[in-house]
Structures are given as C-alpha cells and as structure tokens.
C-alpha cells in the first residue's frame, strides 16, 4: 500500500475516541449487540413474570442439564483466555505462538458447539405427554408424564399444518426416574384416547423452552460467526503477520473483543436459563 492512501487513525489512536478506528467501530457494533440481547433478556423477564401459575419451571434445571452447561461455561471462559493470550503472543512478535493460541480458541469454540449439539438433540428425543385423565405412575397420580419413547413404540408423526405431533393410537413411554432417584418406573402404555397433547422438549413445548432455544440459538450463531473469523485468521494470519505484525495484532484484538462479548453473554445466559 502506498503512503498516499494511508487511512488516518488506521493504527494510531484517534484523539477523540482514544483508540484506532477499527476498534472503535467494533465497540459500536458491540453496543448494538447489547441492545439485541437486551431486548431478548427483557422479553424473557416479561414472559416469565406473565407466565400463568405452573407453566414456567421452578428453575431451568428441572428441564435442562446443569453439569453440561457448567462444563460449557468453563470451556468458553478458557477460550476467552486463549484468545487474549493469542493477542499477547502477537504483541511480543511470537507469531507461531499466537497462531497456536488462536487454533486452541477455535477448538474450544468447536467443543462448546459439540456439547450444545448433544444438549439440543437430547431435548428432541425427550417427550412430555399431557393426559386427559390422570394416571398413576410410581404411586403418584399425575396429569402429565415425561420420558423417552420405548424401543418398540410406533414412531410419532407430525400434523403438517400445525407442526404438532398427531395423537397416535397408543404410545409406549419409559418415564423419567423421579427426582433424586436413578430407577426408572416400568414402561407405560398410554392409549391415544387419554392423550391431550404430546410434545418433545423442543421450542414448541412451552414458553420457557421457546425462550431457551431463541436465546441459546442466537448465542450459538454468534459462536459460529466468531469461529468463521478465527478460522480465516488461522489460515491467512501467518503470512499477513510477517508483513504487518502490528496490524495483525490489532485485528486479533478486535476479533478478541467480539469473542469476549460472546463469552460475556453466556456468563449471563447460563444462570438465567439454567439456574433461576
């Protein structure tokens, strides 16, 4: 690049903002992201406060997997550290070390998504059946039963126009073990005539799960977006860093800002969705 087309404050801090323009732009973007997630958090509060008695779980852990989410929290925090270590290494002109930390960050992000995939798919294989007349399970009379479809249960079909499960002639359900126990009650046969509604634990199950999938889904998309950028720098970074080491460190700093923000959002999502 010739000096004639040098962009002002491309690298040097702008006197007003105190930072180079790229970083300032990224902060403005993050401010808009705060508004996006803020609106969704606000909707969460509104929906939860307005939920009719008994329709919102006492806390997310009733439905969601806390140990997996705790593991994922640690994975994401660690990836934030490796991201900032990549920047620090590049600042010390250690390109190989910087690229290595960048790769570790990418792998940790991938690990987060793999865990999330298992969490999501478990939700789509877990069912709740609401009954017309209560049934006795494990000595308790219940009006809805949660569990997994038994092996020899005929497959469920969806009604195309309303995307809900059609009520079958009967289903065979392995009910969940009661809280604090590992022993599953025996397989239940439930006649279609007594079934009011069947749903997996997908977004259609309840307002809570719709909120959960919206918030974690949007967060997951942000993880994927970050991984695309990190992968780009993993592939092209070494060559660019040899030509413009300072500029490259700045780019990684900006990528890091975004990445830490994604981590920060998860720090709030985790307790709000899983623990409260």
């Amino acid at each position: 690049m010739s000096a004639a087309v040098a962009i002002p404050h491309d690298m040097e801090p702008h006197p007003v903002t105190g930072m180079y323009n790229g970083k300032f732009g990224l902060w403005l973007f993050l401010a808009s992201e705060v508004m996006l997630f803020g609106a969704l958090f606000s909707s969460y509060v509104l929906l939860r406060m307005g939920a009719p008695e008994g329709t919102w779980p006492k806390h997310g852990a009733e439905i969601l997997n806390v140990p997996l989410a705790t593991f994922n929290t640690v994975v994401l925090i660690t990836s934030s550290v490796t991201m900032v270590m990549a920047w620090a290494a590049l600042k010390m002109n250690n390109i190989a070390r910087g690229q290595l930390f960048l790769t570790v960050t990418f792998l940790l992000a991938g690990a987060f998504l793999v865990v999330k995939y298992f969490e999501y798919s478990e939700k789509f294989n877990h069912f709740e059946v609401w009954l017309k007349e209560p049934m006795v399970v494990d000595g308790n009379s219940v009006s809805s039963i949660r569990g997994h479809l038994a092996k020899d249960c005929p497959p469920l079909t969806k009604e195309t126009h309303i995307r809900a499960f059609a009520i079958p002639e009967f289903i065979l359900l392995d009910p969940d073990a009661p809280a604090g126990s590992k022993e599953h009650p025996p397989t239940l046969r439930i006649d279609g005539g007594n079934i009011r509604r069947i749903s997996d634990f997908g977004p259609a199950h309840s307002t809570f799960l719709a909120t959960y999938f919206t918030l974690t889904g949007l967060h997951g998309l942000h993880i994927i977006g970050g991984m695309v950028v990190i992968l780009y720098f993993m592939l092209t970074g070494s060559r660019f860093a040899q030509k413009r080491p300072d500029k490259y460190a700045d780019r990684i700093e900006c990528t890091g800002l975004y990445w830490h923000f994604v981590d920060l959002v998860w720090i709030f999502l985790f307790p709000v969705l899983y623990l409260l």
């Binding site: 105190g18 508004m35 803020g38 609106a39 606000s42 509104l46 406060m49 890091g256």
Partner: peptide
C-alpha cells in the same frame, strides 16, 4: 480481557449510554 480498564476517552460515554438504554430495556416489563 477487553482492555476496557486501560481505555481512555469517548468509549466510556458511549458505553454508559449503552448501559442506560440496556437498563431501560430491562425495566420495560
């Protein structure tokens, strides 16, 4: 991690504004 503690200048005002709007959003309900 985001080096906010060592930043200077306008960014604090912008983020303060952002935080204010965020609180308003959360208080909407």
């Amino acid at each position: 991690f985001m080096h906010l503690i060592s930043e200077r200048g306008l960014i604090y005002w912008i983020l303060a504004l952002c935080a204010l709007f965020f609180v308003v959003l959360l208080l909407l309900p």
